[in-house]
Amino acid sequence: MPYPITRAARTAALVAAASALAAVSTGCTPGADDNAAASPGYVSEDGSVRTWEPGQRPGPVVVTGTDYEGRAVDTGDWLGDVLVINTWYAACPPCRAEAPTLATLARDRAEQGVRVLGINVEDAAGAALAFQNTFDIPYPSIEDRDGLAVASLSGVVPLQAVPTTVVLDHQGRVAARIVGLAEESTLNSLVGDVVAESPVQ
């Protein structure tokens, strides 16, 4: 004989469902962030933001791979610059929403020594290049269906959370991270703070 559903059980189920929906809203395929409970920073309406003070930053991080034009990429060659790394794939709605922000940032801050690198975790060349053409993306993206490039960010990027955006400082260390949609003012503020730092800290 089935037991009746109590008001408390119904409430608990609704809370669990709401929590799951909130998690999904931050990205296309969100994953667990083991550091979330202890992370400083704040949660915006677009995604979870974490920053690290210079003496506490993980890294340096080096990402290597091949972009969709067939060129080798090694971020170790870019030490001294500020690097913004963004995970994405073409069918991901928040990835599409933030693409103009990332493209504008790459153009507007290039003279300040800011580089942007995409890591595509899903797409073959056709879909990825179509996305890049649609949004007039001026920076390279690594094809990473084998997950090796994202693995370079293990412990920093929740591996199933797409999009995630990471800001590396002049020394290649992780200065900031956005899990979910990168809102324009938030991303520009994070990047501006790192650009303003001394290259040697």
Results as ranks from 00 to 15, higher is better:
66 T>H: 00
67 D>P: 03
67 D>G: 06
67 D>R: 05
68 Y>H: 05
69 E>W: 08
71 R>H: 11
74 D>K: 11
74 D>H: 10
75 T>L: 02
75 T>I: 09
76 G>C: 05
76 G>P: 06
77 D>R: 15
78 W>A: 09
78 W>T: 12
81 D>Q: 10
82 V>D: 02
82 V>F: 03
84 V>D: 00
85 I>S: 02
86 N>I: 11
87 T>E: 00
89 Y>W: 13
92 C>K: 09
92 C>E: 11
95 C>T: 08
96 R>T: 05
99 A>W: 08
99 A>P: 02
101 T>M: 04
101 T>V: 15
102 L>Q: 04
103 A>Y: 01
103 A>Q: 02
103 A>W: 01
104 T>H: 11
105 L>M: 06
105 L>I: 14
105 L>G: 04
106 A>Y: 03
107 R>K: 06
108 D>P: 00
108 D>A: 15
108 D>F: 02
110 A>I: 02
111 E>T: 13
112 Q>M: 04
114 V>K: 02
115 R>Y: 01
116 V>S: 01
117 L>M: 08
118 G>W: 03
118 G>D: 09
119 I>P: 04
120 N>H: 06
121 V>W: 05
122 E>I: 12
122 E>D: 13
123 D>S: 09
123 D>K: 05
123 D>R: 07
126 G>T: 14
126 G>N: 12
127 A>E: 12
129 L>P: 01
129 L>C: 09
130 A>N: 05
133 N>H: 13
135 F>S: 04
135 F>C: 06
135 F>V: 09
137 I>K: 03
138 P>T: 09
139 Y>C: 03
139 Y>F: 13
139 Y>P: 00
141 S>P: 03
143 E>H: 12
146 D>G: 14
147 G>Q: 06
148 L>T: 14
149 A>N: 10
149 A>T: 11
149 A>W: 00
150 V>T: 14
151 A>C: 05
152 S>T: 07
152 S>L: 03
152 S>R: 15
153 L>D: 06
154 S>R: 12
154 S>F: 10
155 G>T: 01
158 P>F: 13
158 P>L: 15
158 P>D: 10
159 L>G: 12
160 Q>D: 14
161 A>D: 08
162 V>R: 07
163 P>H: 11
163 P>T: 13
168 L>K: 00
168 L>E: 00
169 D>I: 11
169 D>Q: 07
171 Q>R: 12
172 G>H: 03
172 G>L: 08
172 G>D: 08
173 R>S: 12
174 V>L: 08
175 A>D: 01
175 A>M: 04
176 A>T: 03
177 R>M: 10
177 R>G: 04
177 R>Y: 04
178 I>Y: 01
180 G>F: 06
181 L>Q: 15
182 A>C: 06
183 E>A: 15
185 S>A: 15
186 T>S: 05
186 T>E: 07
189 S>N: 10
189 S>K: 14
189 S>P: 00
189 S>V: 10
192 G>W: 09
193 D>M: 14
193 D>W: 14
193 D>N: 13
194 V>N: 02
194 V>H: 03
